[in-house]
Design a protein around this nucleic acid. Structure first.
Lengths: 257, 257
DNA sequence: CGGAGTGTTGATAGGAGTCAATATATGTGG
DNA sequence: CCACATATATTGACTCCTATCAACACTCCG
């Protein structure tokens, strides 16, 4: 259930574009609430306020009381926490169709959310949202589903972080992103969207270490680094072997967010 | 909502017991399903099969299709995964009142569960459980609550694993356990229940490193190690400072499971 | 009493962290 | 459109900490 509707994806045009266009490309995804949202879901979302968020903008502050539930329609966001000395920690990547911060009603989310690409979101008061959840079985199912998916994804993150080697960690991230971005999977080109700083914060490494890991993969002939935040996978097989993920790209266990 | 019912806790007798008795002591906790379970919940749980599980026994295998939902009534359990080369990885600790492995209906749990103390559980077929969830709003709320709590707990685990220092990681674990075990919080004595191997698997370290970290804390005068799997906290304040958790013990952000 | 499992301690090596310098890209204003 | 200032990314030198291999002490169990 809730399989992604490939055909519904839009704006997945040809591989050749100008740099500027590529940089500004939005990521549209079939959202769960698109899928099983016949009329009640549409009704519910109609009440939500829609907003556009510029790249780099904070959607929700870390200590904010989380007055509203937020859904990501378009773009990519990260959940983060500013953990004292060791700087920002990125807890999860969020993709279109995700709820941004599912927190217990009334409790603080305990993490902030930032748009790493230009994004579109909807926003609905907590109280209203949870009432809708009570009323609408479909929405209820969606919420529970995302919660369980989040648990799985965070579990993967935990497994990843226990990996001591920096190269392996980075390799897993690349495979994970390649699995997300279908256009990348075909062309073997991944738009990272994340800065080195963000990648480091996500993988629990230092910036320099991430940079070195990239270089290692490059000189090993496993990837190319054609542009700043872009990676071309030359040998997915070797990358998967190195990452200890036998199957390579796939929906498998490598979910994030 | 769903505050723990302290008064309902049983078997929290005096501090002085024989070693044998202490070793076999069970941990009884006010379970969520005890709390708001007037009659319908009782009705639902009555249908569940109850079992006793010996210490060290596998409650659920890693690749098992997860035919049933399991609840932990008494004792402590761990969710684990046998991650190839680097041995067992412990994903989460589970305490009485928790569901063991909340997975999407039909999907594999992707992790095994083992009892680290003698335990009592209930077991109910997936299908039946999820039907009950549909029918019973109270149960529904409990499930969602635990899912959201799990997300928070795993987030803490992610933050913990990004901490590079072994001593800090261990310190956080101790604080976390002290917050769980109320009897320990008063007497400053923590029953670890976990072997060094398990602790290492939980913290993402090697056994030797864990041992060294214990020693470091001991020689620093922060803890005592009176017995094998027992820790006495001499200076909670210094421990908290070291761990970077200013508030010390508390329900705060340090949830596990 | 003895053996297996568990925990501690030591020596060494490898890898990530840290500080520092340089190169490249981004963005702004002239 | 170019020049400059800033942010971002790469590379190098060096240190510290953890992993690893090895030996030993302790505990639990029959």
């Amino acid at each position: 259930m809730l399989a992604t509707m490939e055909s519904a994806a839009v704006d997945r045009g040809g591989a050749e574009r100008s740099m500027a266009a590529r940089r500004q490309r939005k990521t549209r995804w079939p959202a769960p609430w698109d899928k099983l949202a016949p009329e009640e879901m549409q009704e519910i979302l109609r009440q939500a306020r829609r907003e556009r968020v510029a790249r780099g903008k904070i959607i929700m502050h870390e200590d904010e009381p989380a007055a509203s539930v937020i859904g990501l329609i378009e773009g990519i966001a990260v959940q983060f926490r500013d953990g004292g000395q060791q700087g920002r920690q990125i807890l999860a990547l969020r993709f279109p169709g995700d709820f941004l911060v599912l927190a217990q009603e009334g409790r603080a989310a305990a993490c902030g959310v930032e748009a790493v690409t230009p994004a579109r979101i909807w926003r609905m008061p907590q109280k209203e949202f949870w009432r809708s959840v009570e009323d609408c079985p479909a929405l209820r199912r969606i919420v529970l589903m995302q919660a369980l998916r989040d648990i799985d994804a965070e579990r993967e993150q935990i497994v990843l972080l226990r990996e001591p080697s920096a190269v392996v960690r980075l390799g897993r991230l690349l495979i994970l992103l390649a699995g997300r971005d279908k256009s990348a999977a075909t062309g073997r080109r991944i738009l990272l969207h994340l800065s080195r700083r963000d990648i480091a914060a996500f993988l629990g490494l230092q910036i320099e270490t991430v940079s070195r890991a990239f270089t290692q993969l490059r000189v090993a002939g496993i990837i190319d680094l054609p542009r700043r935040r872009e990676v071309a996978i030359r040998s997915l097989e070797r990358l998967a072997t190195l990452a200890g993920v036998p199957s390579g790209i796939g929906p498998g266990r490598c979910g994030v967010g």
